[in-house]
Design a binder for these strands. Structure first.
Lengths: 222, 222
DNA sequence: CGTCAACTGTCAGTGACTGACATAACGTCC
DNA sequence: GGACGTTATGTCAGTCACTGACAGTTGACG
């Protein structure tokens, strides 16, 4: 909260005129009000009217900024996904697909500074994620996002390996398995009492390390 | 619609008195009306009132039989899940975990005769499944079911292998990867034009066969 | 300064659901 | 076979998410 300049043009981020700045402010206000309510009272016990009232706009206006109530909850999460894809694109071509996804995933939750929009602290983002995992009403959007991200990831992997994703099933299959494990990771992490960034990284590595052994024939050996 | 007997007691399935039989009939009527509407007009374009009217009961009564609109769509699907778990339990202990899940999955969609309730033909069940896959509004329930099934499967696998699922991550990880691939399979199958039982089995085997290779280091070799 | 386009509020309406209450129809016990 | 308690059902009213239509304001810009 150190950026308190009133109206200066901070090199970037406020490109347009008064109108655009105001829109941005309204959106941020709605976002923060919503996340505040969600993480304190819970998603279900927060009404859209409540959020709109807190920001002094009409309910109708809320829906002009966010397609639906779910959308607010995931607004901050989008940055994480974007970061994952960006990191994945940046991985050296020599790296094996699975390894590339693993590295990208580990970096995705890092900082994600105020890069492209939502000013949400890492800590709040994590609290929101835990809420998402524990709120059935948000599962639909969660799943839709997962599917979308999987799709994009599969295409990226196929491109990396120079394969046609419709002919060779490996890109999609690898991504599906990977995503399944990542979802599990997020879920278990959300339930832990020590749900910090370190714990998340730790769990991610633990699970991905176990994937190979888990698929191998017998578990009793070794 | 060939079963037109008025009140006979068909050997089994009608244990209670008139009251219970009537309830059963109402439930089945609602289920079939709903699935009929869903698969012809689509889920979103079908209102609960419409379903209730078709069966000549009040909307309130519909909600006494099904917790919500989604529940009807998944009523038939529950038999498939149950079958999967049952088959998995039946797998020989010597079989590797992954192989056991694979075999169980391949049997899950078979027949599932009118065993324990919902009289839905295999064909209708598949049409419903395709609808589920292509209807975002149903993704929430879809996901909740997936999570639940994963949980149960992981416990079963852990028990099979004599492991503590909270100490050894392998059961959950294996199930997560497996489930991820199965979800992908269902999704791709739902998009195909030849979406029959054979195609589903085929896709399942293809994808599961590719899981090992997909996880291996380099895809270019071989 | 005036005009156009964009932002917003208000209002009415739909559809999924829920609680409360009244009614009618079993089930059953004498 | 009739009285009585349980239970399925209908009706009604109300909440909440969401949407379309219309009207009023207010920046943007020539």
């Amino acid at each position: 909260m150190t950026r308190t300049q009133t109206s200066g043009v901070p090199a970037q981020g406020a490109p347009g005129g008064l109108r655009e700045r105001r829109k941005r402010r309204t959106r941020e206000a709605l976002l923060h009000a919503a996340l505040g309510f969600f993480t304190t009272q819970g998603y279900d016990r927060t009404t859209v009217d409540e959020i709109a009232d807190a920001v002094d706009v009409s309910q109708r206006t809320f829906f002009r900024y966010f397609a639906n109530k779910e959308a607010v909850a995931f607004a901050a999460q989008e940055a994480v996904d974007a970061r994952f894809l960006a990191e994945l694109r940046r991985r050296p071509a020599a790296e094996a697909p699975f390894e590339a996804m693993r590295r990208a995933a580990l970096k995705a939750w890092d900082a994600t500074p105020e890069a492209d929009g939502e000013y949400v602290t890492a800590e709040l983002r994590m609290r929101v994620y835990r809420m998402i995992e524990s709120t059935p009403a948000l599962h639909a959007a969660h799943m839709r996002r997962h599917i979308g991200l999987q799709q994009q990831t599969a295409l990226l992997i196929a491109e990396r390996e120079g394969l046609d994703p419709d002919a060779d099933p490996r890109p999609r299959v690898a991504v599906a398995a990977f995503s399944g494990v990542m979802r599990l990771t997020g879920q278990l992490w959300g339930r832990r009492s020590d749900a910090g960034a370190d714990a998340l990284r730790e769990l991610t590595e633990l699970h991905l390390d176990q994937l190979g052994p888990a698929l191998s024939g017998s578990w009793r050996a070794a």
